[in-house]
């Protein structure tokens, strides 16, 4: 018997490891104690190296760019000053509108809106060759991050927290083939579900063929979404065509965020 095992050891080990990998992969649908502990344990070891490496890379890039970008910085500074002036004026007007809105809501006895808190976060790692669109962020359960928290940037929504370790978490980006979020066509108020395709664009699903949807329409987060505040920009409709079944529309949405160059974002938390 031992001779048999020794002779076929390579095939036996190969089969055993394949079975373990398959079990781990299938268990991702409903992550259990073993897979979560394994992931957190490995992350605990590897994340400090990744944080150090990312810090070195960012420092080097900043040093390199500092040497030849003085002219660009001057131009950027002037441009930003103009923008700040414009935005300050707009902010004042919006604050006035918000106060007015709040008074009207109180008078109409509307339910109070949930306030949101933002946790600034940086991306420390991503696998550029993976089929899945996921990144690793430098915040974890030590910062009260939880699975399912929404992730946004000043431009629009980014994705949501998929796994949480002690000092890091995995973010499933909007583009991921398993991502799905409730969306709304801003102009015509048509609701749908935005699904990632893994191919650089999103699909707006469950929109009937007679609904009013046009190329160029903005798609924002729906009030039906529990992860995100309503009205945050997701993307623009790039193409509209009848689906194969003839009942629905096949709608492609170009996300507003450049995910390849994204390096920081905000984790959304509902305030108690």
């Amino acid at each position: 018997m031992p001779e048999f095992l020794w002779k076929w050891r390579r095939e036996l080990i190969f089969s055993l490891l394949i079975i373990i990998s398959l079990v781990l992969l299938v268990s991702q649908r409903q992550p259990g104690f073993f897979s979560l502990t394994l992931r957190q344990g490995v992350a605990f070891v590897i994340v400090p190296f990744q944080k150090a490496s990312t810090a070195i890379i960012k420092r080097s890039r900043s040093l390199l760019s500092r040497t030849h970008s003085l002219k660009k910085l001057r131009w950027q500074n002037a441009d930003l000053k103009r923008k700040v002036e414009k935005l300050s004026l707009r902010n004042m007007m919006l604050q006035e509108q918000a106060r007015e809105n709040e008074t009207l809501r109180q008078e109409l006895d509307y339910q109070k809106r949930t306030p949101w808190a933002f946790l600034p976060t940086e991306i420390i790692a991503r696998d550029p060759v993976s089929w899945l669109e996921r990144v690793v962020a430098d915040r974890g359960s030590a910062d009260d991050v939880e699975v399912g928290d929404g992730v946004i940037s000043p431009l629009g929504i980014v994705g949501r927290i998929q796994n949480v370790g002690l000092y890091s978490s995995t973010v499933m980006l909007l583009l991921d083939a398993q991502s799905s979020v409730a969306g709304l066509v801003e102009r015509s108020r048509i609701n749908g579900t935005l699904k990632g395709t893994g191919a650089g664009y999103l699909k707006l699903k469950y929109v009937a063929s007679d609904d009013d949807v046009r190329v160029g329409d903005r798609v924002v987060t729906s009030p039906l979404s529990s992860l995100f505040p309503p009205g945050l920009l997701i993307g623009e409709i790039a193409s509209v065509a009848p689906a194969d079944d003839g009942l629905m529309l096949d709608i492609q949405v170009k996300p507003v965020i450049q995910f390849k160059t994204l390096d920081r974002f905000l984790i959304l938390r509902k305030e108690d």
């Binding site: 490891l17 398959l22 992969l25 490995v42 790692a125 991503r126 996921r134």
Partner: peptide, 14 residues
């Protein structure tokens, strides 16, 4: 690689 890149556990291993 699965953990470090935020992928599914077992995907790259397989």
């Amino acid at each position: 690689q699965d953990v470090a890149g935020g992928g599914l556990l077992g995907q790259n291993a397989l």
